Simulated assay, not measured.
Amino acid sequence: MRKSVHVRRQRVRRRGRIGLTRAQALLVLFACAVFFCLLTGFVLAGGEEAEPVYASYKLVTVQPGDSLWELAGRYQEEAGIERAELIAAIKRANQLSHTLIYPGDNLLIPLAK
């Protein structure tokens, strides 16, 4: 009677295991690595946009009370683009990660493409 109980336990254990050999596990790991590399390559390649080319830049010294919104409005006609686009272009040209500017800062304002 004990022998049949032991056999049942063994059967339960075998059913719960996933039968992968080392070669199969390495193949799955390799396939996942290749998929990850391809996925990150496509994401990184698609995220980069070409830097717009502008005909010229104007160097402006920030005065008290100036903001990027105000400067973009002041130079919007010369730049020939929308105010929001000009703010983004000013941030790129001056490598700003935020919109805070201070009196005395020198900023490049991109003008007509």
Rank of each mutant, 00 (worst) to 15 (best):
78 E>C: 01
43 V>T: 11
85 E>H: 07
33 A>N: 12
100 L>F: 09
97 S>H: 14
31 A>P: 01
38 L>N: 13
40 T>W: 09
12 V>M: 06
18 I>A: 15
110 P>C: 05
58 K>H: 07
9 R>H: 12
37 C>S: 14
38 L>W: 06
41 G>Q: 07
109 I>L: 04
75 Y>W: 13
41 G>V: 04
15 R>L: 13
35 F>W: 13
90 I>G: 00
22 R>H: 06
107 L>D: 05
32 C>W: 01
52 P>I: 00
22 R>Y: 06
13 R>V: 02
37 C>H: 05
26 L>A: 15
4 S>G: 03
77 E>V: 14
78 E>T: 07
59 L>F: 07
105 D>M: 07
80 G>N: 10
81 I>D: 03
99 T>I: 06
94 N>D: 02
6 H>D: 10
95 Q>H: 10
36 F>L: 14
38 L>T: 13
9 R>E: 08
49 E>K: 10
97 S>G: 14
72 A>M: 00
18 I>K: 14
35 F>E: 04
5 V>D: 02
86 L>K: 00
57 Y>G: 00
63 Q>G: 01
66 D>M: 06
11 R>N: 11
27 L>Y: 09
67 S>D: 03
34 V>L: 11
96 L>Y: 00
32 C>G: 01
96 L>K: 03
58 K>L: 11
52 P>R: 05
95 Q>C: 05
51 E>T: 12
58 K>I: 08
25 A>Y: 07
44 L>C: 04
96 L>T: 03
31 A>H: 08
61 T>M: 13
34 V>H: 03
44 L>M: 10
60 V>I: 06
84 A>R: 09
2 R>Q: 04
51 E>N: 11
113 K>P: 11
31 A>T: 15
78 E>M: 09
31 A>W: 07
24 Q>S: 11
112 A>V: 06
72 A>Y: 00
3 K>E: 06
19 G>L: 08
91 K>T: 05
63 Q>C: 02
83 R>D: 05
65 G>H: 04
14 R>L: 11
51 E>H: 09
79 A>D: 07
15 R>F: 03
40 T>I: 08
45 A>L: 15
66 D>C: 03
41 G>H: 09
53 V>N: 08
78 E>F: 05
7 V>Y: 05
4 S>F: 03
58 K>T: 10
21 T>C: 09
106 N>P: 02
109 I>Y: 00
78 E>P: 07
54 Y>C: 02
49 E>G: 12
26 L>Q: 11
38 L>G: 15
28 V>A: 15
85 E>D: 15
51 E>Q: 13
104 G>C: 06
70 E>C: 04
3 K>I: 10
62 V>C: 09
2 R>C: 01
37 C>A: 15
92 R>L: 08
89 A>G: 03
92 R>V: 06
47 G>A: 14
56 S>I: 06
43 V>D: 13
71 L>F: 06
49 E>T: 08
38 L>F: 10
83 R>L: 04
11 R>S: 14
80 G>V: 03
73 G>Q: 09
101 I>P: 01
93 A>W: 00
22 R>V: 08
66 D>N: 09
54 Y>K: 07
22 R>Q: 02
95 Q>F: 12
58 K>M: 05
2 R>P: 02
